[in-house]
Amino acid sequence: MLGSVLLLVALLWYSVNLRQQDETNFLESLLLRVTGPTQAGFDRVIVGAADIWGHYLYLVDTAEDNRQLTEENRTLRAVLTQSDEVRLENERLRLLLDFKETQEIDTLPARVIAEDASSWFRTVTIDKGSVQGVVEGMSVVAAEGVVGRVVRSRPRFARVLLLTDASSAVASLLQDNRARGVCRGKGEYLVFDFVLRQEEVTVGDRVVTSGMGGIFPKGLVVGNVKSVDRQEFGLFQVIEVAPTVDFSHLEEVLVMLRGPQ
């Protein structure tokens, strides 16, 4: 009987409230006032606990993950660097191969393994020698141009006198107006000697080997004119040439397998 009354009251309450369902009634308001702060308090506690767990207690695994990821990152970086190195070497070798295919003379690729022990001289040691057919006097080139000539040959190694050494001289000519001269090394650049004053030379002109002297074949790039000084007196101009080959980063070269003519 009591149950039926309660059920009826509840139904009536429900049906009465259906009309004001868009408004907050007194009971709901009271409930919200009580439960809201409580829920908020619990929420803060739970969030705080989760934060402590996630950021401090659970960090035992995170530290391990972090170590693994750092290790992985380091390994990947090493692989990436190695891959970059291989890619760059590949590009350089491709250039050298393209250049090799344009040459009529047989060439032998070699790797630069050491530099001169002194700062006053410009020589390098390559990993090919008389066993591979490298003899004194052979010219050495790179894709960018002339490197130098072989001055010492041992069974497995050879030393190359670079174009920029003070004792190096190459018979050359200007590609445009064919003015002849001799390019001499000056340490980091070259001077183009014996070009007559009346020859028209401008900065940027390309200098190539003339083929005279029998060491270097004709037409190999030596460098570009860097400065021209046509002095008031004298027979010749003072011309500085910037070599096209970057001698400070020389890694692979080609030895032209033909002795001096």
Binding site: A117, S118, G187, E188, F247
Partner: peptide, 22 residues
């Protein structure tokens, strides 16, 4: 000294200059 001057120092110093240890 020779090995350092011909192989290692040119890589480190990147250029023509190197100290003369000899």
């Amino acid at each position: 000294a020779v090995v350092l001057q011909t192989v290692f120092l040119p890589v480190l110093l990147q250029g023509y200059y190197k100290p003369d240890l000899l």
